[in-house]
Structure formats: structure tokens, C-alpha cells
Amino acid sequence: MPSKMSGLMLAGIAAYGTSTVYTAFTAVGGGLAGLSTGRSVSNRGTSSSSQQSSRSEPSFGTSTTGVCVLGAAAAALGVAAAGRRSAGRQGEVSRAANPRKFNEQLPCSSGPFSVTVGKAGPSSFSILIAGLEKAGLTSALDGDGPFTLFAPDDKAFEAAGLTAEAVLAHPDLVTILKMHVLPGAIVAKGFKNQTVETLGGPVTMRKGVKGVMMNKAVINKADVEIANGIMHILGGVILP
């Protein structure tokens, strides 16, 4: 409702500004014509009439110019705001027209669908993808969901001291990866101190000085929208 009211107000301002500009320019034209006629008559009249007409001109001209400027500014603001709203709606339609599931999003380490964290370059998830494939969990992430995936990128595995070979050879690979998947969609607004039940068991979500943590892994980027859920990028790996 507030956004609709704001839209109506801006539309009203634009319409009022346009009307004011039209009225002001009409007044200017009429005023100038009248002043021209007044000068012609005053030239044939007395000197005092000419002086009175001359004194009245600056006041009329300044007032009309002020109205024109204010009206034009209001109209321009209304049109600009309408343009921004239209562009925003088009952007939303564009995003909605390109849904991507987890298995389509994760390989995007470059291009328009890549995901960046802060000032770092696009995140790469090659280790996570390899682990999901070996654990047989790829098909599960192709489901309708919704799912929440806490996705450690390659830098997160490196920070945990885990190479691709070590991850793939880990005896608890399936359990560890399942601890990164949660049934249902939890967005950042739902982050709080709680225990969430992942597919691999309970994981502690806690708000701390470094940010929101899943066990000891910090969420570096939240709310990456996916067609069948939501993804949060981790700076570490959730371990039992």
C-alpha cells in the first residue's frame, strides 16, 4: 500500500508540474502580449502611465519564471521516479524469467550468473560440486525443494585445510555434505541463535562478532536466490 500511495503521489506531482508548466508558459505568452499592448498605449499616453507600466513588468516576469521553474522541476522528478520504478520492474521480470537450480548455479564461476563475495572475484565451487557428485547428492538438489544450501566455495575448503583429494577421500563425506543442506528455505531475516535440523543432523546457527555462523563456518554472503531454494555462501566448512 505505501508503494502504491508513493506512486500515486509522484504521478500527481508530475501531472501537476506539467499542468503548471503549460499554464505558466501560456501566462507568459499572454503577459508578454499584454505588456506589448500596454507599451503601445502608454507611448501615446502620459509619462506617469509609462513609468507605472515599467515598474509592473519585473514583478510579473519574476513570478511567472519561478512558477515555470518549480513546475518543470516537479514534472522532471515525477518522470524520473516513474522511469526508475519501470526499470526495477523490468529487472524483476528478467530475473524471474531466468530461474536456475542449484546444479545450474554452482558451476557459474564466470558470466552474468556468477556470484561474488564482497570485493573478491566470482566464487568457484568446484570442490563442492565434485563432492556432491561422489556422494550421489546431485540429483537431490535437482528436486523441486525448496532447499537451503550452505555452500562453501573453494576458498572455504582451503581455509579449512581441505584439498579436493582430502574431501573426496573423507570417510564422512556424505554426512558432511548433508549437513550443508536444509529442507525448506531460510533467508537472512530468519537467522537467529538456534539449532537447525539439516539432512546430516543438527547444526548450531549462532550470531557472533564475525557474523552468523553455522557451527564454526561464517556465512560470507546470504540470500543468493535459486529457482528451487536459497543459497548462502560460507567462508568455512560445516563439520560434525
Rank of each mutant, 00 (worst) to 15 (best):
T138F: 12
S114A: 15
Y16Q: 04
V174Q: 08
G145P: 03
G71V: 03
F60R: 04
N43A: 14
K119A: 15
E57N: 10
G121F: 05
F125W: 05
G161C: 07
A96E: 13
T138G: 14
G83T: 10
L137T: 05
L234S: 00
P122W: 03
S48C: 09
T204K: 14
V218M: 12
G91W: 13
T175K: 15
K192V: 00
L128Q: 01
H170G: 00
V115N: 09
S56A: 13
H170R: 09
G161Q: 04
R44Y: 10
C68W: 14
F25L: 13
P202R: 02
R206Q: 14
A82V: 08
K155H: 12
S59M: 09
Y16T: 06
R100W: 04
E225C: 03
S124V: 06
D172M: 09
V209D: 12
I219R: 01
A73F: 12
T65R: 07
A73R: 00
T138V: 15
L8G: 10
A135R: 01
K134I: 01
P58A: 04
S54Y: 11
L173M: 01
R206K: 14
F113P: 02
E92V: 12
G118I: 07
H170Q: 07
S59C: 07
G30M: 12
V212M: 08
T37D: 14
T198H: 01
T198M: 02
N43T: 08
S123N: 06
M5N: 10
I13W: 13
V181D: 00
T46I: 09
L10D: 13
K221Q: 01
P240D: 05
